[in-house]
Design a protein around this nucleic acid. Structure first.
Length: 275
DNA sequence: AGCCAGGGTCTGC
DNA sequence: GCAGACCATGGC
């Protein structure tokens, strides 16, 4: 992998097993879009990446080396050897097929609060609508940056709002859950820092103190917001996969990487009908 | 019109 | 502990 600072951005070359477009649009994060030039645009920690696919990698427009190292290197988990992980989970034939077809999907290291809030919104909902709700959430209460994009609003700000304030989001019954999460974080009833060091069961229990957070949302928060690769969220699609392929239990080879295998299988199964 | 979507809560047994 | 009604919204 080569990272070079150019005049007006960062050149990223030869990063193995990294498909930014697939990773951004495979249903794990909801804040990525494409602009009129076909560049991939997303905002993390208030900073916006405008990413152009090149022949041998990616170009991050108007990005300093400092920003790349502080945000994007970590967000795309470039320290982790995904080639090795994909080999490890591929003895299973179905996973092998999914990995070959969608090679380069990585679990994005999202901010904990954004992941928690996003997956509260995701419940009994579909991806286009989730994206729309989060878009309105950010443009209403986030901060606009120099690229004209919005940050994800802090829980401190949201904690002071009411369900009436949130009505324009069209989030339905989920609005009260967003507020409960924001308030429990603000008043330290729940401490996100404790979850990093907690065991999986303790972490699940802690997150599920929030109204509207059940097993699925807790699992997604741990996988996408705390990078617990062994978390295994089961939604309707993964439920289908498990009943169709693994009625007797998950394959041994994914142990420790359940979340990554899940992401490949999820995207593969969801796109089956379009093949 | 009715079903589905990266579910969870609440009630009743 | 577990099934079933209910929850808002929009696309198909």
């Amino acid at each position: 992998m080569i990272i070079n600072e150019a005049e007006n951005g960062i050149i990223l070359k030869d990063a193995k097993c990294l498909d930014i477009e697939l990773s951004a649009f495979c249903g794990q994060a909801f804040r990525w879009k494409k602009n009129e030039k076909g560049f991939i645009v997303g905002t993390v920690k208030g900073k916006t990446a405008v990413i152009e696919k090149t022949d041998d990698g990616y170009f991050f427009h108007s990005c300093s080396l400092k920003e790349f190292e502080e945000i994007w290197y970590d967000y795309f988990d470039l320290d982790t050897d995904y080639v090795n992980i994909c080999e490890k989970i591929s003895p299973d034939e179905s996973i092998k097929k999914a990995v070959e077809m969608y090679y380069g999907i990585r679990i994005l290291k999202q901010e904990p609060w954004e992941a928690l809030c996003s997956f509260i919104i995701s419940q009994n909902n579909n991806i286009p609508r989730i994206t729309g709700i989060i878009d309105r959430l950010c443009s209403t209460w986030g901060e606009k940056n120099e690229k004209g994009e919005y940050s994800f609003p802090s829980y401190e700000i949201l904690a002071g709002l009411t369900v009436e304030d949130l009505a324009p989001l069209k989030a339905g019954f989920r609005s009260k859950y967003i507020l409960d999460a924001a308030q429990k974080l603000k008043n330290k009833e729940i401490d996100l820092n404790k979850i990093y060091s907690a065991t999986m069961d303790e972490a699940r229990e802690e997150l599920m103190k929030i109204k509207g957070v059940g097993p699925k949302v807790a699992e997604c928060t741990l996988l996408y917001g705390f990078y617990k690769k062994e978390a295994f969220p089961v939604d309707v699609w993964v439920k289908r996969i498990v009943s169709e392929l693994y009625p007797e239990g998950l394959p041994e080879c994914i142990k420790g990487n359940e979340g990554i295998a899940q992401q490949y299988l999820f995207h593969w199964r969801r796109n089956l009908k379009e093949e």
